[in-house]
Amino acid sequence: MGALFFGGPVPGAQPADDGRWCLRWAGTAVMGILNTTPDSFSDGGRHTSVDAALASARRMRAAGVLILDVGGESTRPGAEPVPAEVELDRVLPLVRALAAEGALISVDTMKPEVAHVALRAGAGLINDVTGLRDPEMVRVCAAAGAPACVMHMQGEPRTMQVQPHYDDVVAEVHGALRAQAEQVRAAGVPDVVLDPGIGFGKTLEHNLTLLRALGDLTAGPFPVLVGASRKRLIDYIARVPQAAERDPGTLALHLHAARHGAALVRAHAAAEHVQALRVQAALESGTLQSPA
């Protein structure tokens, strides 16, 4: 059973005994990706209009996707940052429209000013690839009662894939995530999701080692998200140079993550993931989950 705590009411959550609100789900849930950027590595330009993004979001929700993750700045290797005003122009119309339809929304941003405005517009949580390194981002999430996804990244998007190095990738990544989670929670953020940051400042072998050791991370007190959707490691393994053609490899990686305790997977082909995860859960448990 997955669980995520919020400082106030959000779609699907129920009051908890400690004053927070708790969203619970069975098995591994799906966070569907909605990039509103023109330059994302596999779907750039698909959702630059609100109507197109809403149509995709509605299909995802109808299929049983739990969270919609809206992003307005590409974090692919080598990506250049964009001003906060540009990012807000891209994400705010979609956040407002989705909130009006009762969706649970995550905003994928590194900027506290973007997070602040998006949370006021109806987003429920923040997905920060820098792992809440900025103290202001911690303050924004705490003040809004918004949980955060804390991802591990060595370096920053423009340089993260330039000779990444670890002496012990599992110990270093897991240790950094756990320490940051405790610090963020102590600062008042209601809950934390841990993300090992597949493809963010890591070689192929680093990524595979982290995926093989996922059970160590999921055994801890915080829910874990794995986001390997259409990442370059699938090309390295299976020779699929076009990112949009990597959904079969993505499913293989995410089904592995589910078997090893991941509470969430973040995916472009979100509806297909819901279907595959339900079938895997039925095979493993011998029971059927009711569709959402």
Rank of each mutant, 00 (worst) to 15 (best):
Leu194Phe: 07
His256Pro: 00
Val50Ala: 08
Gly201Ser: 11
Arg20Ile: 01
Pro157Asp: 04
Ala84His: 09
Thr250Ala: 12
Ser290Met: 11
Gly71Asp: 07
His47Val: 05
Gly249Glu: 14
His152Lys: 01
Gln183Met: 10
Cys149Leu: 09
Leu233His: 14
Arg239Tyr: 03
Ile237Val: 15
Val107Asn: 05
Ala123Lys: 02
His268Phe: 05
Glu245Tyr: 07
Glu136Gln: 12
Ala57Met: 04
Arg96Lys: 11
Ala257Leu: 05
Met31Asn: 02
Leu233Gly: 02
Arg212Ser: 13
His165Leu: 11
Gly122Phe: 11
Glu172Ser: 06
Arg178Gly: 09
Asp235Pro: 15
Leu132Gly: 02
Tyr236Asn: 15
Asp51Glu: 14
Asp235Tyr: 00
Ala79Ser: 15
Val274Gln: 11
Val170Gly: 07
Pro157His: 08
Leu119Ile: 11
Ser74Thr: 15
Ala79His: 14
Val265Thr: 10
Ala244Tyr: 13
Asp195Lys: 09
Arg246Asp: 14
Pro81Tyr: 02
Ala148Thr: 02
Arg20Met: 04
Leu23Glu: 11
Ser106Thr: 01
Ile126Gln: 00
Pro157Trp: 09
Met151Gln: 03
Leu208Ala: 13
Ala144Pro: 04
Arg76Cys: 12
Gln289Cys: 03
Glu87Tyr: 06
Glu113Val: 07
Arg90Tyr: 09
Ala57Ile: 04
Met1Phe: 03
Glu73Lys: 14
Leu211Ile: 14
Ile234Asn: 12
Arg158Tyr: 08
Arg259Pro: 01
Ser285Glu: 03
His165Val: 15
Met31Arg: 01
Ala257Asn: 03
Ala118Val: 03
Cys149Arg: 00
Gly102Gln: 08
Leu177Tyr: 01
Val240Tyr: 09
Trp25Gly: 04
Leu98Lys: 03
Met60Pro: 02
Pro196Trp: 07
Gly227Cys: 07
Asp168Leu: 06
Val95Asn: 01
Leu177Ser: 00
Ala176Ser: 11
Gly131Gln: 14
Gly102Leu: 09
Leu208Glu: 15
Ile33Gln: 10
Gln275Phe: 00
Arg59Met: 03
Glu205Ile: 00
Ala244Trp: 12
Val91Asn: 05
Ala271Lys: 08
Asp18Phe: 10
